[in-house]
Write a protein that binds this DNA or RNA. Sequence first.
DNA 1: GGACCATACCTCGGAGTCGAGGTATAACGG
DNA 2: CCGTTATACCTCGACTCCGAGGTATGGTCC
Lengths: 176, 176
Amino acid sequence: MLKLAILGFLRDRPLHGYELRRHLAALTGHVRPISDGTLYPAIKRLEADGLLLRTTEPGTAAAPRHTLHLTEAGRSALLDRLRTPEDLDISDENRWFTVLAFLRHLDGEPEAQATVLRRRLAFLSEPASFFYDGARPVGAEEVDDPFRRGMLLIARATTEAELAWLRDTLAGLDRA
Amino acid sequence: MLKLAILGFLRDRPLHGYELRRHLAALTGHVRPISDGTLYPAIKRLEADGLLLRTTEPGTAAAPRHTLHLTEAGRSALLDRLRTPEDLDISDENRWFTVLAFLRHLDGEPEAQATVLRRRLAFLSEPASFFYDGARPVGAEEVDDPFRRGMLLIARATTEAELAWLRDTLAGLDRA
DNA sequence: GGACCATACCTCGGAGTCGAGGTATAACGG
DNA sequence: CCGTTATACCTCGACTCCGAGGTATGGTCC
């Protein structure tokens, strides 16, 4: 997920680590802040894999900066990941939002974008609950516990808002 | 999060590992399945910490079962965790939902429950976005990219549904 | 000129997680 | 009676992540 976000941001323009950190903080930091100890090793991994290059420049403000550029391999790794996300990228909201944040990078391929949205649509269309009576999902109305009822109500509201948006957006992509 | 969920389920009644696995699959498995390689070491950690005990019984269906019981220390660890959740338990939706699933275990303490809900209320009330223009959060209407606009629209719908529920539920707790 | 802060990068140990694999038992179908 | 499936538990190596700590530079304020 971090890998996807780094590649996604660098696709727009080269950044150095500190800028990347600020972009990431905006995208996911409200919910789950990422630490230096996570970011810098991740950058090293991507560099070792040949997905990005760094060029050292004298720092404008302070220490020398390592500006990070996506390589050709990095660009295609990003596009591959966006075309065929893992199941967890579809089901986990945090990961899904990261995919959405960069899905526009598939701008020449509206069918590929639609395919990804349809996977999310299929996932959200499955009947699901947090609690089951045997194999039957239990609805909000049947739950006495007010907190568990809240979970189900909130989840339902989210799902409905997202389904509406998905259907709208898919209709738009099909026209294109 | 796994720790919280295990303690929470065992608070209701003793379970063996396999049953626990099914309960966890219902609660979080739709979004993020947990594997055996995660669950069983987690059980061992909790046992080593004295939070649960296991009693071996001849299996009804197959291999002998290890029925897991919460100890007194386990019960108070659960209640402590529910009374004072970590920041990540408040901000990350997956973790927050786990807290909500077991918040009823603080049933004798409506003020403690209200305190937790108020922390989530404060978190959701902060103005936040995924994208910033300098320090100013960017709203859905300003974004051209349809996918990023979707993120913001969905997040807004979720937040509003949850805020409405939080205010309702807090009003109910204050009356109690 | 010294304290302090923001910038900018890095390492290390510890903890949690995962996937792949392994071991048994019992029931069921052919 | 043999293969398959469901039950039930476990280990291991690889990987990721986090927090705590460290290094260094340049600008601002008093």
